[in-house]
């Protein structure tokens, strides 16, 4: 099999805090193959966004990748200099974030913001870049493109702004798009439209997707392979079909059940008791153990992420492996 497009291995990311070091990502592996749509699920504080920032070499100080590698197209991004990163970012890897307003320059017409991105990364004339920008806006449903290109960000709705951001991300035809909660701030009908457009256009361009979300139903819709993070660790990964029908890790099971919004006869929701651990002082062993209904003595030791079943799924849980 070919080498993966993005290969994160043994990654550890730490933030110094007042009295201790917070390990946001603790020895995590993740792969995205050519043309693959990969979902990364986790709750706030699980480390999923930190992972996304590291994958695009956008992690800001004081956060620091202290161990591990991030290989993209065979090059180690973590050892690349800033110029090398700039060359890759935008043209090879692009990112879309949750809040489009902070991403756009309020003073520049959106068409220029899109064409500028293209001019930075490819040798094309200004007018060529403008034509392409208008076409890209149209492709994302901002019609007529020539009219929309002349608008400023504040003249657009939230959904339209997010389309502009996606146009900026994709106009350089990147190999990998990292989308961190791209539709979380939007209304459900707008979200549906944007997921449709995004899905269509990355298929057309052959762009791989790393979609990060807390929303399992969005991930299920968009992705074929899913990773689940909890408290800085990868707890399970596998093909979407298997992960959603036969989740192995008790955390994945609980998360799926909680997001179904099922209520019992007394109209009480299923809940996961307790709260995630403090990552400045993570507990020994499995980090979900204190909330887990299947807790055993052996859970005081860290379980390895080992294969389960035959479809390529892995889970880090003692229930599924020999002690």
């Amino acid at each position: 099999m070919n080498a993966p497009l993005l290969n994160i291995s043994g990654l550890r990311v730490q933030y110094p805090t007042g009295d201790a070091t917070l390990t946001a990502v603790d020895g995590v592996d993740l792969q995205v193959r050519e043309g693959q749509r990969v979902g990364l699920v986790g709750e706030s504080g699980s480390g999923k966004s930190t992972l996304a920032f590291v994958a695009a070499r956008l992690l800001r100080s004081p956060g620091r990748a202290t161990e591990g590698r991030v290989d993209f197209e065979g090059r180690d991004l973590l050892s690349l200099d800033e110029a090398g990163c700039n060359e890759i970012r935008g043209s090879r890897i692009a990112m879309v974030y949750q809040d489009p307003f902070t991403f756009l320059n309020p003073l520049i017409r959106v068409g220029n913001q899109v064409s500028e991105t293209l001019q930075t990364h490819s040798r094309c004339s200004r007018s060529q870049a403008r034509t392409q920008a208008v076409m890209m806006l149209e492709r994302l449903g901002l019609r007529p493109g020539a009219v929309m290109a002349r608008k400023h960000p504040h003249q657009l709705s939230g959904g339209q702004r997010q389309r502009v951001v996606i146009a900026m991300a994709l106009i350089g035809r990147p190999r990998l798009l990292i989308a961190d909660e791209p539709t979380t701030a939007l209304d459900v009908t707008v979200q549906a439209q944007i997921l449709r457009v995004l899905s269509g256009i990355i298929a057309e361009l052959g762009t791989s997707l790393l979609l990060i979300s807390h929303d399992l139903s969005v991930i299920r819709l968009m992705c074929e392979f899913i990773y689940v993070m909890y408290a800085g660790k990868m707890v399970e990964f596998g093909p979407a079909a298997e992960l959603f029908t036969a989740p192995r890790h008790p955390y994945t099971q609980a998360l799926l059940r909680a997001s179904g919004h099922d209520v019992d006869a007394n109209r009480r929701f299923f809940t996961i008791p307790g709260a995630p651990p403090d990552l400045r002082r993570p507990p020994e062993g499995c980090r979900f153990a204190h909330r887990c209904p299947h807790r055993m003595k052996i859970c005081a030791r860290s379980p390895a992420l080992l294969p389960v079943g035959h479809a390529g799924s892995h889970a880090a849980c003692w229930l599924h492996q020999p002690p």
């Binding site: 449903g141 459900v188 549906a192 449709r196 899905s199 819709l221």
Partner: peptide, 23 residues
């Protein structure tokens, strides 16, 4: 009806293929 079919939990990947815009 539209709200309901827009919910990701009700949508299927097949529905992502088509695209309708109102401008």
């Amino acid at each position: 009806l539209r709200l309901m079919v827009s919910m990701p939990a009700y949508m299927t990947a097949a529905q992502l293929v088509t695209d309708h815009e109102v401008t």
